[in-house]
Measured scan of single mutants.
Amino acid sequence: MWEAGIQHIELEKGSKGLGFSILDYQDPIDPASTVIIIRSLVPGGIAEKDGRLLPGDRLMFVNDVNLENSSLEEAVEALKGAPSGTVRIGVAKPLP
């Protein structure tokens, strides 16, 4: 389960991407759907250096692409398709 509020994070995407990987996970509230979760951070990558994204965070959007009900493929496309420079990411943090 995740917090209702969405944290807005801006990262600078370079030639090596944003520095994290994702996975799809069965939604605990709606078993028929999936949620997109941050799986891991690349050591020394943009996301790890920034410090705000953590494994277990739920990915909600990338720039103007809503990922609340997306497939893993759609989420990967949104991340890979984001141009270099500032990328806006929304995440919901896990409940304590």
Rank of each mutant, 00 (worst) to 15 (best):
M1Q: 03
M1H: 12
M1N: 15
M1K: 15
W2K: 15
W2F: 08
W2H: 11
W2Q: 07
W2R: 06
W2V: 04
W2L: 04
E3Y: 06
E3H: 03
E3C: 04
E3V: 05
A4P: 06
A4W: 03
A4Y: 11
G5V: 09
G5D: 09
G5C: 03
I6N: 06
I6G: 03
I6T: 09
I6V: 12
I6F: 09
I6L: 05
Q7D: 11
H8D: 05
H8S: 13
H8G: 04
I9V: 04
E10F: 09
E10H: 06
E10I: 08
E10C: 08
E10R: 09
L11S: 00
L11W: 02
L11I: 10
L11Y: 06
E12F: 07
E12H: 07
E12T: 13
E12V: 15
E12N: 15
K13S: 12
K13D: 03
G14F: 09
G14R: 09
G14K: 14
G14M: 13
S15T: 12
S15C: 10
K16W: 05
K16H: 06
G17Q: 05
G17R: 03
G17F: 02
G17T: 05
G17V: 02
G17D: 11
G17L: 03
G17S: 05
L18S: 02
L18F: 06
L18Q: 01
L18C: 04
L18E: 02
G19S: 03
G19T: 01
G19Y: 00
G19N: 01
G19K: 01
G19A: 02
F20N: 00
F20G: 00
F20P: 00
F20L: 06
F20H: 00
S21G: 10
S21C: 07
S21L: 05
S21E: 07
S21D: 15
S21F: 11
I22P: 03
L23A: 14
L23D: 13
L23R: 15
L23H: 15
L23Q: 15
L23V: 12
L23M: 11
D24Y: 02
D24P: 14
D24H: 04
D24F: 03
D24N: 10
D24M: 03
Y25V: 08
Q26Y: 07
Q26F: 10
Q26P: 10
Q26R: 11
D27F: 06
D27M: 07
P28V: 09
P28F: 05
I29V: 13
I29F: 06
I29T: 09
I29S: 11
D30I: 10
D30N: 14
P31Y: 09
P31I: 08
P31Q: 10
P31S: 13
P31V: 07
P31E: 13
A32N: 14
A32Q: 05
A32I: 13
A32T: 09
A32P: 15
S33M: 07
S33W: 05
S33C: 12
S33Y: 07
T34G: 15
V35E: 13
V35T: 14
V35Y: 14
V35I: 15
V35C: 10
I36M: 06
I36Y: 04
I36T: 06
I36Q: 04
I36L: 07
I36S: 03
I36A: 03
I36D: 01
I37P: 00
I37W: 03
I37T: 15
I37S: 13
I38D: 01
I38S: 00
I38L: 06
I38E: 01
I38N: 01
R39E: 07
R39K: 14
R39M: 03
R39I: 04
R39S: 10
S40M: 13
S40T: 10
S40F: 08
S40H: 09
L41P: 00
L41Q: 01
L41W: 02
V42L: 10
V42R: 11
P43G: 06
P43F: 06
P43N: 10
P43S: 10
P43M: 08
G44L: 06
G44E: 04
G44A: 08
G44T: 05
G44D: 15
G44I: 01
G45Y: 03
G45I: 01
G45H: 04
G45C: 03
G45S: 14
I46Y: 09
I46D: 11
I46C: 06
I46T: 13
I46M: 12
I46V: 08
A47Q: 01
A47N: 01
A47P: 03
A47F: 01
A47R: 01
E48Y: 07
E48H: 09
K49F: 06
K49W: 03
K49M: 08
K49H: 10
K49N: 14
D50G: 06
D50N: 14
D50K: 03
D50Q: 06
D50H: 04
G51F: 01
G51I: 01
R52S: 04
L53M: 14
L53K: 01
L53P: 04
L53F: 04
L53D: 01
L54D: 13
L54N: 08
P55L: 06
P55D: 04
P55K: 15
P55M: 09
P55E: 14
G56T: 02
G56V: 01
G56P: 01
G56Q: 04
G56A: 03
D57K: 02
D57N: 09
R58P: 01
R58C: 02
R58T: 01
L59G: 01
L59Q: 01
L59S: 00
L59T: 01
L59F: 02
M60T: 08
M60P: 00
M60S: 04
M60F: 08
F61S: 07
F61H: 10
V62D: 01
V62P: 00
N63T: 00
N63P: 00
N63E: 12
N63Q: 05
N63A: 04
V65E: 10
V65W: 08
V65T: 13
N66G: 12
N66E: 11
L67Q: 02
L67E: 00
L67K: 00
E68N: 07
N69S: 11
N69M: 07
N69C: 14
N69R: 09
N69F: 12
S70H: 10
S71K: 10
S71E: 08
S71F: 07
L72E: 15
E73D: 14
E73N: 08
E74V: 10
E74L: 14
E74I: 07
E74G: 06
A75I: 01
A75K: 01
A75G: 15
V76T: 09
V76S: 12
V76R: 15
V76N: 12
V76C: 11
E77F: 13
E77C: 10
E77K: 06
A78Q: 11
A78F: 06
A78N: 05
A78Y: 05
L79M: 12
L79S: 01
L79Q: 02
K80H: 09
K80W: 10
K80S: 08
K80R: 08
G81A: 15
G81H: 13
G81V: 13
G81Q: 12
G81R: 11
A82R: 03
A82T: 11
P83K: 08
P83E: 06
P83T: 08
P83C: 06
P83V: 07
S84E: 05
S84D: 10
S84A: 15
S84W: 12
G85C: 04
G85K: 07
G85P: 09
G85V: 02
T86I: 10
T86C: 12
V87F: 03
V87G: 02
V87K: 00
V87N: 06
V87M: 06
V87Y: 02
R88F: 05
R88L: 13
R88Y: 13
I89N: 00
I89K: 01
I89C: 05
G90F: 00
G90P: 01
G90Q: 05
G90E: 02
G90L: 02
G90V: 03
V91Y: 11
V91L: 10
V91N: 01
A92E: 13
A92G: 10
A92T: 15
A92C: 14
A92P: 01
A92Q: 12
K93Q: 06
K93I: 02
P94Q: 15
L95P: 12
L95G: 05
L95M: 14
L95I: 12
L95T: 10
P96H: 04
P96I: 03
P96N: 07
P96S: 09
P96W: 04
